[in-house]
C-alpha cells in the first residue's frame, strides 16, 4: 500500500554560528544562510523509512522561511524527499507559534492527501514545542507526540510514545500528525546522486495569499503574543579557586560539609 507522508521542516541559522537577536524586532536574525534543523532530519528519515516499508508513495516537505530560502529543503530533498511546498512572504515576519501553525496547516493541505504528517517535537531555534499540536487541531486530525517509533498497520498508526518512565503504546487512525523525538533513527547522509537529483525536484513556492489566508491572521498582525523585552542570560558566577599548598583537600571537605553532602 503506497503511503504519502508530509514532513514539516524548519530552516534555521546554523547553530554552529551563535545566533543574534534583533533589538528592534526582539526576534532572531534570520537573514543569514539557513540550514535544515537537525531536529527535523529525524522526521525526514523516519518518513523515508516508512515509505520504503510501505513499498510506495512519497515524502513531501512543507516549510515556512524568509526570502524563498531553500538551502535546508535541498538537504532533505537530497536525502530522498520527492518535492516541497515552501511558504515565503513578507507578511509572515513576526509570526508566533499559532500563526506558523495556520500557515503550515494550509500548506499541508496544498501538498495533497497525506496519510501521515510528521514533525519534530520542537525546533532547535524557537523551542515553543506547540506547533505540532496546533497543526493537528487546525487540520482536525489526531495528534501523537514524542514518537520514538512508528508502525503502520492498514489504516492504523501504532506509536511508541516516549515518557519519562519508558514508553506508551498509542494508536490512532490515519491520517494523523505525529511528532518524533530526536535520535530515534539515524538520518542518512545525502548521496552525491541525491544531491544532484535534489536540484531538479519541484519546490512549490507560495505566498500567504496563495494559501487563502488573510495576511492579518499571520505575522506581527496576527500574533497573539508580544515580546516585551529581551535580555542577556546571566552568566554563571566563577567558582572559587583554591591554591593547593598541601592542605587543599581540607577546604574541599569543609566545602562539602557546608553543603551537608558529607
Amino acid at each position: 500500500m503506497a503511503m504519502n507522508i508530509v514532513v514539516c521542516v524548519k530552516q534555521i541559522p546554523d547553530p554552529a554560528d551563535p545566533g543574534e537577536l534583533d533589538p528592534n524586532t526582539k526576534t532572531l536574525k534570520r537573514d543569514v544562510k539557513l540550514i535544515l534543523d537537525e531536529a527535523d532530519s529525524y522526521g525526514v528519515e523516519m518518513a523515508l523509512q516508512l515509505v520504503d516499508a510501505a513499498g510506495g508513495g512519497e515524502v513531501t516537505l512543507v516549510s515556512m522561511a524568509p526570502d524563498d530560502e531553500v538551502g535546508g529543503i535541498r538537504t532533505a530533498l537530497a536525502m530522498g524527499a520527492a518535492k516541497a511546498v515552501l511558504v515565503s512572504d513578507e507578511a509572515l515576519v513576526g509570526s508566533d507559534a499559532l500563526g506558523t501553525a495556520k500557515v503550515l496547516a494550509k500548506a499541508i493541505e496544498r501538498a495533497g492527501d497525506a496519510d501521515l504528517v510528521i514533525t519534530a517535537t520542537e525546533s532547535s531555534d524557537g523551542y515553543t514545542g506547540t506547533v505540532p499540536e496546533q497543526v493537528a487541531e487546525l487540520l482536525g486530525l489526531p495528534s501523537i507526540t514524542f514518537a520514538k517509533s512508528i508502525e503502520v498497520d492498514g489504516n492504523t498508526i501504532k506509536v511508541k510514545r516516549q515518557t519519562e518512565a519508558g514508553y506508551d503504546d498509542v494508536e490512532a487512525p490515519t491520517p494523523a500528525v505525529i511528532s518524533v523525538t530526536a535520535g530515534v533513527v539515524e538520518p542518512r547522509y545525502p548521496s552525491f546522486k541525491g544531491i544532484m537529483a535534489a536540484k531538479s525536484k519541484p519546490v512549490d513556492e507560495v505566498t500567504v495569499a496563495d494559501l487563502g489566508l488573510d495576511a492579518d491572521a499571520v505575522g506581527w498582525a496576527g500574533a497573539r503574543q508580544e515580546i516585551v523585552e529581551i535580555a542577556t542570560a546571566e552568566t554563571r558566577e566563577a567558582g572559587t579557586i583554591i591554591e593547593d599548598e598541601g592542605e587543599g583537600y581540607a577546604q574541599i571537605v569543609d566545602f562539602l560539609a557546608d553543603l551537608k553532602v558529607i
Binding site: 537530497a78 547522509y189 545525502p190 552525491f192 544531491i195 544532484m196
Partner: peptide, 13 residues
C-alpha cells in the same frame, strides 16, 4: 556549487 556540496557532505560523514 555542486562540488562544494559534495565536499560538505563528505565532511559531515
Amino acid at each position: 556549487e555542486e562540488q562544494a556540496e559534495f565536499r560538505s557532505a563528505v565532511k559531515a560523514l
